[in-house]
Design a protein around this nucleic acid. Structure first.
Length: 672
DNA sequence: TCGACACTAAACAAAG
DNA sequence: TCTTTGTTTAGTGTCG
């Protein structure tokens, strides 16, 4: 037995190390679960992750090679891959050529499949990308045709056609451009997703696959020339009016995010021969004027252009570099577009997180404020277990303040859990250790809800060691665990307990030995620990005693079996009272629970009413509870608060209120 | 201020 | 001998 446990603990230790070092949680968890550091599961997880990564890399390389080959084969005749295509004449062909290489031929796809370097998901992504590219090709063809039409119309115009027709053409083109833009956006999204999955890496120096073609398609100098010709024929107002559109067309990348700047950059007048780079100085100068000594793209003597990092000794050289290397060409446009997408994604993410935060704060605020009456309980709960010392937390010991703001925020907590995560969280900042009374019985639901949080965040859970131990034991199939298994549960469920093992393990042992509710049973495999619910519940009363008013209230209301007062009921309703129902129900031993509760009540009652002797644990709750205490305890004025707090922290379900009004932790039954 | 409780730390013993 | 497990004691902080 010892050996087994010994090995387990050792593994446990390693897991802890991993956890502290920020290692893979999966691994840790797995290892912990299995009780071995190198547990199959964890190892497999890690291996799979690595394998996936390697596969991604391989797939990416293969895809690149394929694309490169294809590009070389197909484009060799058309033009060199470098796209210095500033020559208008070549613009269209080049763009088309650039595009084709990105589409993977069926043979190539087959090759990829044969190599099996891509996972099904990757393949799917690849296929999607290919589809998008195909679509884009079609659009490009359409675009070509349109250009031809435009040219024809221009010729006609020069021959004496009316400008109105030109406008029509322009609007037509605008619509088309918009379509392209949409396509491009879709493709961009797709690219981003690819990038995130590691399937695609867009290097600044290299033309991004789809981006490049798009950029060329979207910003063809030829088109600009045509546009210029068209616009030049029009009145200034018209040109200005169309400018926007032109901007959109040409600078799709920039336009969306920075319209104003775009307009500057893309200003039609500026674009003479497609060398829009001429304008870049304008932009540069502009930004430079605004920030003479600083440039968002320049810092620490390095060009901060994405992927550049060129060293520029001074600002002047930086400007030169910027104008020369990052002129308004296809590459820069593509990079800009990518950056824009990145920013958009970040903004989106930020918005989501903000929203989430808002919801969390709102939720917590409501919770904490709403029961002004019952704020205490929350605090109690939260602070609950983790005691003070912890709060001071020296880095070495379980340092956290139980109430650290980082406390778990379980938005989702609502429900049966006695201790809603919310309450726990709210507690967060409050350093109080909980008083057991409000001791929060941890329900599996609670833990489950915050599971991920506690698993990953080294936040001290707002539960007492006793509650946690109880939870661990109750969660086990046989309702019994060895010490080492309890350790493992702690480390598995809480990142916080992956550090300072000596401290918290000592505390665990201490609690096991100290509390009568934990019973050591000699088992075949050795000694296991079980929970004596009755005893566990018993503890309550004492603690509760601290809050006699609450107890009284509880008792009174329950004892008499009179309907709860409106306030109490309301509070209960507010505070997930269902606890009992769901949580406790889950317990196989609902009856036990009830009895346990009674025990608690009795104990509490006893505490409050010394006269009553009948409130023995053994007694059925109903019996014990009712007759005994009820009358003696007049309702306190505080009652209002009391019940609420109880409710909040604990578990009141209308049904079972009586049973456990004060149980803080007691009710593990919920644990299932 | 006091009692109760929880947590941490430590010492000690027993067993594998 | 070392490690783990289990018990016990002491000190401290929080809460009611």
């Amino acid at each position: 037995m010892m050996q087994e446990s010994g090995t387990e603990t050792k593994s446990n230790g390693s897991a802890i190390q991993n956890g502290s070092s920020g290692g893979n949680h999966l691994l840790e968890c797995g290892g912990l679960r299995e009780g071995r550091p190198n547990g199959e599961t964890p190892a497999v997880d890690v291996g799979a992750a690595d394998l996936a990564h390697v596969q991604q890399q391989q797939a990416l390389q293969v895809a690149r090679q394929l694309l490169l080959q294809q590009q070389q084969q197909q484009v060799s005749g058309l033009k060199s891959p470098k796209r210095n295509d500033k020559q208008p004449a070549l613009q269209v062909p080049v763009s088309v050529a650039m595009m084709t290489p990105q589409v993977i031929t069926p043979q190539q796809m087959q090759q990829i499949l044969q190599q099996q370097v891509l996972s099904p998901q990757q393949l799917q992504v690849l296929l999607q990308q290919q589809q998008a590219l195909m679509l884009q090709q079609q659009l490009q063809e359409f675009y070509k045709k349109q250009q031809e039409q435009l040219q024809l119309q221009l010729l006609q115009q020069h021959a004496g056609k009316q400008p109105k027709e030109q406008q029509q053409v322009a609007t037509q083109q605008l619509a088309f451009q918009q379509q392209l833009l949409q396509m491009q956006q879709l493709q961009q999204q797709h690219l981003l997703s690819l990038q995130r999955q590691g399937l695609l890496t867009i290097q600044p120096g290299q033309p991004a696959l789809p981006l490049q073609p798009l950029a060329q398609g979207m910003i063809p100098t030829e088109l600009q020339q045509l546009w210029k010709e068209v616009t030049s024929a029009h009145t200034t107002e018209e040109t200005t009016g169309n400018n926007h559109s032109s901007l959109d067309l040409t600078t799709t990348c920039v336009s969306s995010s920075a319209p104003s700047k775009t307009s500057l950059i893309m200003n039609p007048h500026a674009s003479t021969n497609g060398q829009l780079s001429v304008h870049t100085p304008k932009r540069e100068s502009l930004s430079h004027e605004e920030h003479p000594h600083s440039h968002p793209l320049y810092g620490h003597g390095v060009c901060k252009w994405p992927g550049c990092e060129a060293v520029c000794e001074d600002f002047q050289s930086f400007l030169k570099h910027l104008n020369s290397e990052h002129a308004l060409d296809d590459r820069s446009t593509a990079q800009c577009r990518v950056q824009m997408q990145v920013v958009q994604q970040l903004e989106l993410q930020l918005a989501k997180d903000k929203e989430r935060l808002q919801a969390m704060m709102t939720h917590l605020h409501v919770k904490s404020t709403e029961p002004k009456t019952a704020p205490q309980p929350l605090n109690l709960v939260s602070s609950v277990t983790l005691s003070k010392s912890a709060s001071e937390a020296s880095p070495q010991s379980l340092p956290h303040t139980p109430t650290t703001p980082t406390a778990p925020i379980t938005p989702v907590t609502q429900g049966p859990s006695v201790i809603t995560t919310t309450s726990m969280h709210t507690v967060g900042p409050i350093r109080r250790r909980y008083s057991d009374k409000y001791n929060v019985p941890i329900s599996s639901a609670d833990i489950a809800q915050n599971q991920e949080f506690y698993k990953n965040a080294e936040v001290r859970p707002p539960f007492t060691y006793a509650s946690l131990i109880r939870q661990a034991i109750l969660e086990s199939p046989e309702k019994q665990l060895t010490l080492n298994e309890i350790y493992n549960w702690f480390t598995r469920m809480f990142a916080y307990f992956r550090r300072n093992a000596a401290t918290w393990k000592n505390a665990v042992r201490h609690n096991l030995s100290l509390h009568k509710c934990f019973v050591r049973v000699e088992n075949v495999k050795g000694a296991v620990w079980t929970v004596d619910e009755v005893e566990f519940q018993k503890r309550r009363p004492q603690k509760i005693s601290g809050n006699p008013s609450l107890i009284k209230n509880m008792q009174t209301s329950h004892a008499y079996c009179t309907p709860l007062n409106a306030a109490l009921q309301a509070s209960m309703a507010e505070n997930s009272i269902p606890l009992y129902t769901t949580a406790s129900m889950g317990n196989p031993t609902l009856g036990n629970l009830a009895s346990a509760i009674r025990e608690e009540l009795n104990g509490a009652m006893e505490h409050t009413n010394s006269n009553e002797s009948d409130s023995s644990p053994g007694r059925s709750p109903m019996q014990a509870v009712h007759p005994v205490h009820v009358k003696e305890e007049p309702l306190d004025p505080e009652e209002a608060e009391g019940p609420l707090s109880l409710v909040t922290t604990a578990n009141h379900s209308p049904d079972f209120d009586h049973d456990r009004d004060y149980e803080d932790e007691p009710v593990h039954e919920d644990v299932e």
